[in-house]
Simulated assay, not measured.
Amino acid sequence: MIFDTHLHLIDRSKLSYPWLSEVPALDRDASYDDYLSVAKRLGITSTLHMEVDVAEKDQTAETDMIEQLMQTKGGTLRGAIASCRPEAEDFPAYLEKVAARRSVYGLRRVLHVVPDEISQSDLFRSNLNRLANTSLTFDLCLLARQLKIGASLIDACPDVPFILDHCGVPDIAGGGYDTWAKDMKDLSRRPNITAKISGIIAYGDPQTWTLDTLRPYVEHTIKCFGWDRVVWGSDSPVCTLGGNIELWVAATHALIAGCSADEKVKLLQDNAKQLWQLE
């Protein structure tokens, strides 16, 4: 069975997504019903919703929407990773409110849509360190060129549990493996970060990628972080940029076919349960 740690749901009738207009291929609704109809066939039994970089005014409303969907009979949603703005002066008040919601297991601020210096600021880091007093994780969503920035942020917040999204977003189609691999190895030396093997088919050439294209990135990530610090995610619907969720699940199973049963269970389910204390 699979624990999907990275699902995006999009409802443009309820929430505003400023960035969608810049990505026409994703500028459409992504409903929970559509996800469920496929997920159950693929063996996905548990799911965490990942915030979709909604307009700041809609951050709380997005979590409200997920809490409502968690009541769906026969559903898989276990909780949410909520949006946040650690660069804001009012972050402490927001954190207090969101940490009190039993549905929220972590926070994320997409870092590749803001200037690099944002996450380097004293205010951002001071606010992020407040997560150390909660049970919340923080997802690092950044580009491969920003991995060193991510390492610096982690060093400044040693008691915060971090999750690295999408194998560090390697430019699989464009190359650059060696630099990515070196920076991933360095990043993995920090004990408070887990890597997410999620939706990397979106970063290969959609017409030509194969298992051999993806294999070096998945295997290097697992080698660096070890089987106890990796989790799996679909990154649906972003994964449709390189195929679809069915293709990504099939590719995942093929890529780990030679691994032990214990290793597979850790990646696909157990590590996520332990990380977020979900049974």
Results as ranks from 00 to 15, higher is better:
Ser13Phe: 08
Lys14Trp: 14
Pro18His: 03
Leu20Ser: 00
Val23Asn: 00
Pro24Thr: 00
Ala25Ile: 01
Arg28Glu: 06
Arg28Ser: 04
Tyr32Asp: 03
Leu36Asp: 04
Gly43Thr: 02
Ile44Phe: 07
Ser46Thr: 06
Thr47Trp: 14
His49Cys: 12
Asp53Cys: 04
Asp53Ala: 05
Val54His: 11
Glu56Asn: 09
Glu56Phe: 12
Lys57Asn: 10
Thr60Trp: 15
Ile66Arg: 13
Leu69Asp: 08
Lys73Phe: 10
Pro86Met: 05
Leu95Pro: 11
Ala100Gly: 03
Gly106Ile: 09
Arg108Val: 01
Val113Thr: 09
Glu117Gly: 02
Glu117Thr: 07
Arg125Gln: 14
Arg130Gln: 13
Thr134Arg: 11
Thr134Ile: 09
Leu147Asp: 06
Gly150Phe: 14
Ile154His: 04
Asp155Pro: 13
Ala156Cys: 05
Asp159Ile: 06
Asp159Pro: 10
Pro161Met: 09
Leu164Met: 07
Tyr177Gln: 02
Asp178Trp: 14
Thr179Phe: 13
Thr179Gly: 02
Lys185Arg: 11
Ile197Gln: 04
Tyr217Gln: 05
His220Trp: 12
Ile222Cys: 03
Phe225Cys: 07
Asp228Gly: 00
Arg229Glu: 03
Leu241Val: 04
Thr252Lys: 06
Ser260Asp: 15
Glu263Asn: 13
Asn271His: 11
Trp276Arg: 10
Glu279Ile: 11
